[in-house]
Design a protein around this nucleic acid. Structure first.
Length: 256
DNA sequence: TCCCAGGCGATCT
DNA sequence: AGATCGCATGGG
């Protein structure tokens, strides 16, 4: 019950710095932290003992209620999505890291996003022994322009620089943003170049625990068009719509 | 080689 | 407000 499936979570498109190392071993990197988990061991016990990772893996939320709601509604596609996505959890990630990661994500494939982010970390992040921390706003704001150009950011480069500038110079306070309501938060994030509705919703869902937000990307559009005849199927899940979106995203990609 | 990727900003009607 | 269009680059 209420399992945590590391493999599915790594592949769920919400985290770009998580890796399947093989043999049931998975690595997750967040900010300047790293955890390596072996699913053959009691991972739940291990995570529960650590304040940061317990919060990160969202262990205290009941993810089974949403399946019940899909069943009550007779929502067949979402029932299948819940079944396929069981064990995926919405990771509580860092706002700055999500901001940069999802600016990069636009019109890029997930493997290409990973490549760009890893280059950024390796070139500008602080070395932590076996890995590199995600670069801070200061590190990106002061980044060498020629080195930045080697990260495959394309036209998104100016967006990244705008984000680094606004956050480093405190025009935008990402920690203070936790106090804002959903609409205020979305508007604040969209002051940054390269942040539109979709990227803002990703940041809100994956960093600010705004579970009602549904990032509408190419896959979600396809679900709406192909499986619901053009009628948006997520809002009826209310405060859990973002979780359902994540299951549906995972499911749709898996059957494509 | 060709096609498209977890969209967005600019520029129109 | 809503519809179109160009966009840099890397994977498959």
């Amino acid at each position: 019950m209420n399992e945590l499936d590391l493999k599915k979570t790594v592949d769920s498109g919400q985290i770009f710095r998580a890796y399947d190392l093989g043999n049931g071993v998975f690595e997750f990197i967040s900010r300047d932290r790293r955890i390596v988990l072996d699913e053959k061991e009691n991972i739940r016990e291990r995570i529960e003992g650590d304040r940061y990772w317990r919060c990160y893996f969202d262990l205290d939320r009941d993810y089974e209620l949403i399946m019940k709601k899909a069943s009550e509604l007779g929502d067949e596609f979402m029932i299948s999505a819940c079944r396929a996505g069981a064990g995926i959890r919405i990771l509580k990630q860092d706002p700055w890291e999500m901001l940069i990661s999802f600016i990069i994500s636009q019109r890029k494939s997930i493997p290409a996003i990973r490549t760009s982010i890893e280059r950024l970390c390796k070139l500008f992040g602080t070395e932590k022994g076996e890995f590199y921390a995600f670069p801070t706003p200061e590190q990106l704001y002061g980044a060498n322009a020629d080195m930045l150009k080697t990260c495959g950011l394309g036209y998104r480069l100016e967006y990244i620089l705008d984000a680094a500038k606004k956050v480093y110079l405190k025009e935008i306070d990402l920690e203070g943003c936790f106090l804002l309501n959903d609409e205020e938060l979305a508007n604040e994030l969209k002051k940054i170049k390269g942040v539109g509705d979709k990227v803002a919703n990703c940041i809100m869902l994956f960093a600010y625990s705004r579970f009602s937000r549904v990032p509408v990307d190419t896959w979600v559009k396809r679900i709406t068009d192909e499986d619901y005849g053009g009628k948006e199927p997520f809002s009826k899940y209310g405060e859990d719509a973002g979780i359902m979106q994540q299951y549906a995203f995972y499911y749709k990609r898996s059957v494509d």
